[in-house]
Design a protein around this nucleic acid. Sequence first.
DNA 1: ATAAATTTTCAATAATTACTGAAAGTTTAA
DNA 2: TTAAACTTTCAGTAATTATTGAAAATTTAT
Lengths: 166, 166
Amino acid sequence: MDYKEAKDKFINTWGSLGSLWGINKAMAQIQALLFISTKPLSMEDIMAELKISRGNTSMNLRQLMDWGIVTKELVAGERKEYFITEKDVQELARVIAKERSRREIKPVIKVLKDVSSIEDNSPEAKELIKQTKALHELTETADEMINKLVNHKQNWITKSLVKLFT
Amino acid sequence: MDYKEAKDKFINTWGSLGSLWGINKAMAQIQALLFISTKPLSMEDIMAELKISRGNTSMNLRQLMDWGIVTKELVAGERKEYFITEKDVQELARVIAKERSRREIKPVIKVLKDVSSIEDNSPEAKELIKQTKALHELTETADEMINKLVNHKQNWITKSLVKLFT
DNA sequence: ATAAATTTTCAATAATTACTGAAAGTTTAA
DNA sequence: TTAAACTTTCAGTAATTATTGAAAATTTAT
């Protein structure tokens, strides 16, 4: 496998992994491309490399910036905007975990809390309350775990692993 | 909020959460329905409750069985098949984590390994190798972490949390 | 101010993914 | 065996989601 093949394979795999996780393909591919690039890339660069339209590139770059994993980089004497992504994988993982907690887990916790606090004594309602309560507790625990790990800042996954299994 | 509202809200929230995570809506809703049901449900029951077709129900039940979170339950003197889901949330979380590791993480680890072991000395290739190696290590560590947690069998999330932050 | 360079927006369209329903297949009881 | 009860399959269709491309908006240089 030569460089070009390897690069394409990486970008494609990352892209399809993304869509499996509710992140769209183009967004994941742009991030992958920036992640392995040795220099900041312009919108033109990205369009050419991934063969996607200007509009698509613009929208997905914005999303990546909303997530906080891509930033604009000014290149001296250039009018175009250039983009870079967080290059440290640990930091990348932290940011993604934090965003997913905020966007996906937190709202579910709220629903589970509401549902589990209805008042009704029928056996069906009791089962609903019991099971949503259990789910609520589990979800909150998992979310707290993520957030604590996420605030460790450095080498968190490795450190936790050592702490857990030694 | 009365029982019916609460039930619908739970099923719908679980359903849309599912699609956010690459699990289709019907599959997540069927699991949610079984999860709060006080008794095993037949295909007819599920179709009526969720207002989905027979084919859809059949296909998604099979998928849930493939995941190992739903099983057939024979009801004495009944010809129909009845279905139940794992009711213990901890066990449910374990099974899901294990399946996601097997289906999604493992294949990515393989690609990252392949990509990071190409031989090429250009600066671009060096960056690709460096970054995919870092990602490979992180992914493997996270996957090992999931698999170890998953083999703890009881109260794993809570236990790990205590262990980690006390 | 003007206009060239660049980015953003969004209606139209393409691509993907999910769902239906009826025909084919399977199981069970008599 | 037969036929009724039930389940699975899958081609066709519907619903959802992603992408394009060109017009509008913005930014920058002069």
